[in-house]
Amino acid sequence: MASASASAQLERAYKRMLIPTFLAVGIFAIVPLVGMIGLSFTDYHLIRGFRGEVGFQNFVRLWTDGRFMESIYVMCALSFIGVAVQIVMGTLVAVGLEKIVPRWRLARGFFVIPFAVPAIVTALVWLSLFTPTLSPINAFFAIFGIQIPAILTTQTGAIAAIVIADTWTTYPFVMLLILAALQGISTDLDEAAAMDGATRIRAFFYITLPLLVPALTMVALFRFIETLKHFPLIFVLTNGGPGRSTQATNYYAYVQTFQSSNVGYGSAIAMFLFFFAGVISLYIAKRNARLADA
């Protein structure tokens, strides 16, 4: 009896622990989300208000809007290239740190520093590094008569610039998760492989890497969804330019909502983004569950 009531008490305590988060998510995520869904079926304009119901018109318009299509291309370029670069870099640093850990424990702290820098600050620092007249990099190479090309004035360059700045600030996230996963892999496997005469590189590719796949998938998913939400880096680094060639979908939703006052259409773009991210999350989560079962 006593233990039963104790466990009921414990359960109540656990439930209470969920209340603040439940309220926070409810108020700050669900309510705006429902509002956004509602608005996406209207023509609400910041200045002119509502003029009538539009039903699915906003969503039909998406597929005929060249700027929206271009924005998806930019978003995908930023996400796929960004995630790939971040995974490779984060994993490299994690493996390096794991192998030299006992002696260099403090080094981890060093590698995590960029993760603590706010996005706007990161963007401002990289903006000056990418501005030829301000950049110490350009000044350094100029000594040897080498001119570094301006990166922010071409589409490819501007996308690369966003990826570089994003990677600089987020590879520690990848690194930390991979590091945790590496520590879960028994060193016996490495030792056995070494006894069987496998080189370290072969051991990494045939033993460590396959065991890291679930962790890598998880990290890639997190990063992918984060990169879909690119905003501060675009806002500060490229201003959506050159032209409008780095207006990724999230940025385009902002342009429509705030610059053009088309809240209804902007909400429809945001809805698309929400479901896009949702579908990808579900797909990868399921795939991940299969991998974990296998």
């Binding site: 501005t131 007249t133 301000l134 301006a150 922010l152 004035t153 490229t238 201003n239 330019g241 050159p242």
Partner: peptide
């Protein structure tokens, strides 16, 4: 100057 295609007033002042 190089990179002027992205210049705004802060870059011009500098």
């Amino acid at each position: 100057p190089q990179g002027v295609g992205r210049f705004n007033f802060p870059e011009i002042v500098a």
